[in-house]
């Protein structure tokens, strides 16, 4: 573009450099995706050692999934996600605004940051196994509670025996694993706000509540939206923690059985038709979420000023 008369053309190198990425994507993601969609329209499963199908059945798999407990599992996934997400976003916002608040002078900031981010790096399956051991009937948590006299030795708390208990444990684990990450991201966003705005608000007599709700929150809205959407996508994929904690059963009574655990069971039992249809449902939902994320990350008009300018121009033209 810049030097048209120069005859050396480098564009082929662009293609060569991006080829490995796209080739890998094509083989290991695109072909599997097409295959998944294709078999979602077939009856195709293993029964004992015999394979049934593939027989074309149209939308039969999709229908029987809707009649199965899929929507209930979707509800479970949502509940498990929200239990972890609400405290996560509240605490993260609070911590992030504290960390950047010069008037608070948090001592040992670096130490706190290192500690709260640490759980994010932990193997979710090992973390779940650890929680399973800690919160079991004879586990350390019960023995601590007994030694404090909160409960007696004959009536230990069966944390994983109730729906609320199991769900709370999953929520606590997700909260612990993600609040540090969110805090650091939000902190970076708040630090990106021009200090002039904060100074001006201070001079105008703004208190810390007003500053938080009227300045900080509106200005970090794009990154908050990004956090929300990526967290929903992460929640949709929730698997390791409930799978290991409940040994794949989502017990009690499948109240913590998630969509991906459902998919995993279909894959393990080699029911390819059903697994395909379930994957397509998940694909559609995550496709919508991907689109929203794309819109947020590639937003060239985050404060709406360009849209407003366009609107005004239109109005002016009409006036003429």
């Amino acid at each position: 573009m810049k030097q048209k008369n120069k005859k050396v053309n480098y564009s082929k190198w662009g293609y060569i450099f991006i080829l490995p990425f796209f080739l890998t994507f094509f083989i290991f993601s695109f072909i599997p995706l097409v295959d998944t969609i294709r078999y979602s329209f077939f009856q195709y499963f293993r029964s004992g050692l015999k394979w049934i199908g593939p027989n074309f059945v149209g939308l039969e798999n999709y229908k029987s999934l809707l009649q199965s407990d899929m929507l209930r599992y979707a509800g479970n996934t949502f509940i498990l996600w929200i239990i972890g997400f609400v405290p996560q976003i509240v605490i993260s916002l609070l911590l992030a605004s504290w960390f950047v608040d010069a008037r608070l002078k948090i001592k040992g900031q670096q130490f706190f940051k290192v500690v709260i981010y640490m759980p994010n790096l932990i193997m979710a399956s090992a973390f779940a196994m650890l929680f399973f051991a800690l919160f079991s009937l004879k586990g350390p948590i019960n023995s601590i509670l007994i030694s404090w006299g909160v409960i007696t030795e004959t009536t230990p708390i069966d944390f994983m025996g109730t729906a609320l208990g199991t769900r709370s444990l999953v929520g606590v684990m997700n909260f612990l694993m993600w609040f540090g990450n969110t805090t650091i991201m939000l902190m970076a966003a708040i630090m990106g706000i021009s200090p002039d705005i904060f100074e001006a608000s201070e001079i105008d007599g703004c208190n810390s509540f007003q500053r938080f709700f009227r300045i900080t929150l509106p200005l970090i809205r794009p990154i908050l939206a990004y956090t929300l959407i990526t967290s929903i996508i992460g929640g949709l994929q929730m698997f390791d923690v409930p799978q290991i904690l409940t040994n794949g059963a989502g017990s009690p009574n499948r109240t913590s059985y998630t969509l991906i655990m459902f998919l995993n069971d279909h894959l393990k039992s080699k029911n390819y038709g059903m697994a395909g249809a379930l994957s397509v449902y998940l694909f559609v939902v995550s496709g919508i979420l991907c689109y929203i994320t794309y819109k947020i990350t590639n937003d060239d008009d985050p404060d709406g000023s360009k849209a407003a300018a366009r609107k005004r121009k239109k109005m002016e033209r009409r006036m003429k």
Partner: peptide, 8 residues
């Protein structure tokens, strides 16, 4: 998510 293509 990678899970949606896991079957294929």
């Amino acid at each position: 998510p990678t899970q949606v293509t896991a079957m294929g």
